[in-house]
Structures are given as C-alpha cells and as structure tokens.
Design a protein around this nucleic acid. Structure first.
Lengths: 109, 109
DNA sequence: CTTGTGAATGTCACATATGACATATAGACT
DNA sequence: AGTCTATATGTCATATGTGACATTCACAAG
C-alpha cells in the first residue's frame, strides 16, 4: 500500500533518516528498509534489556565507555548511531551472539 | 588505549594468525571477542554468498555503490569495515534479515 | 612468456560516528 | 514553589569509516 510507504518515510525522515533519493520517491528499497528495521530492533532490544537489568543510561554508558547522551540516542534509534555501538551495548548488558542474532532476525530477544 | 588491542587482534586474525590464547595475551574482554567473531562471521558469509551468486567483487561493489578494493576488505575481515557495510553487502546479495541474524548468531547462512 | 581477469593491499581526501559537554524536559518527592 | 533523578536533544572537535585510485598478486589461457 503506497500510503503506508509515504507515512513510514515521513516518520523516518522526521527521526533524521535520510532515506530518499529522487528516483526512489515512491518507496524505500527492500534493503534500506531491512537495514532500518534491524537498527530499530536493536534500539528497542537495548532499551528493554537495560531496563530488565535495572540500569540507568549513565550506568550503561560507563560500561561501554560512552556517555549518557549517546546511550539515549542509541535507544531512540538515532541514525547517527552505528550497528557496532548498538551491539556493543547489548553485549555489555549480557546478551550473547545468539541474542543479537535473534534481534536482528526480528525475533524477540 | 584498549581499542588499540582490539584493532591489533583484528589485524592478526585477518592475516590468518591462530594463536593459543590471544584473548588473554592481548587483554581482550569477552565482549570484544564476540564482536570480532560476529565481524568475521559476516565476512565469511559475504564471500560465500557472493560466490554462490557467481558475482565478482567488482560486480558486488557496483550493487552497493562501493569499490572492488572495499569489497575485498570486507571479505578478508579488515577492521576498517563497519557492520553496516557488511550487512548492506549481504542484503544486496539477496540475504534476508533472518539470514543476517543467523550469521551473527554463528549459525551457517 | 604475455595477456587477461579476479582479488588483495596501501594511500588519501572526504564523509560519518564518536564522546564530551551543555542544556532541556519530565516526573517524583518534600 | 524547589530539588532531585532519569532521559532527551543539540553542538563540536576528533576519531573512525568510506570510495576512489594505484599497485601488486595469483592463476589461468592463449
């Protein structure tokens, strides 16, 4: 459904994703959406696991040698955050490679 | 600087070194090791899938808007290559999110 | 031996991601 | 009201990743 694509695109762009080239005005490529979906899945999993561990963003930041502000960006799906940093965060919370793989495969952690 | 050690070991492993307990010798944490293992798994999967698709590195490079030299670095596990680029490569070869997840979980693609 | 094709490696200018810091917002509790 | 605590957001100097390019290597096939 095209209106779905338009809404999704608008939402992503509002979040800072640069997602459109002129020739792709009607929708994202499957690869782009898959990549963004994985990124979002990692973000959500990170927040969920951090809360399960009852840690603050500042505490997690200290574990991975980062800052509270960056952890916040990690969890809200900010596009400036790399996959590597997100995975680092999950591992620091005790997630295994299997856990990370399942998150990326979009199965619940 | 602990990341120096991580980078050093990546280089060593990428060059094919197999040593007894490099983790302890270089002072790597379990999380850093897991991260490197995932990176290597993605590299190997990329090469395997590209060959299955009977594409050259140059052909894959064109698909993802990159260069042959970078694809080569992706496949040999060069530490300068990001997770995102490796995943982009796999997706461009037709891999699904489930495939990528299984690779990261260290199950065969 | 030469030529061709695919892959590896090094370099570099430019782009993106990073931690640190400041600041803002939201809620809970006095 | 004010004051904690946790989280969100913006900026910026620097660290890291990138494509492009040149070169080199391996190994075929003429």
């Amino acid at each position: 459904m095209p209106s779905m694509n338009a809404r999704k695109r608008k939402r992503l762009e509002a979040a800072g994703w640069v997602v459109g080239t002129p020739q792709e005005f009607l929708g994202l490529s499957n690869e782009e959406t898959a990549l963004i979906d994985m990124h979002i899945a990692l973000s959500l999993a990170l927040r969920a696991l951090r809360k399960r561990r009852k840690l603050t963003q500042a505490a997690l930041a200290k574990r991975i040698g980062s800052s509270q502000s960056r952890v916040a960006k990690m969890e809200v799906g900010d596009p400036s955050v790399s996959f590597e940093l997100l995975i680092r965060g999950l591992l620091a919370l005790g997630a295994t490679a299997g856990d990370v793989g399942r998150v990326i495969a979009r199965r619940a952690a």
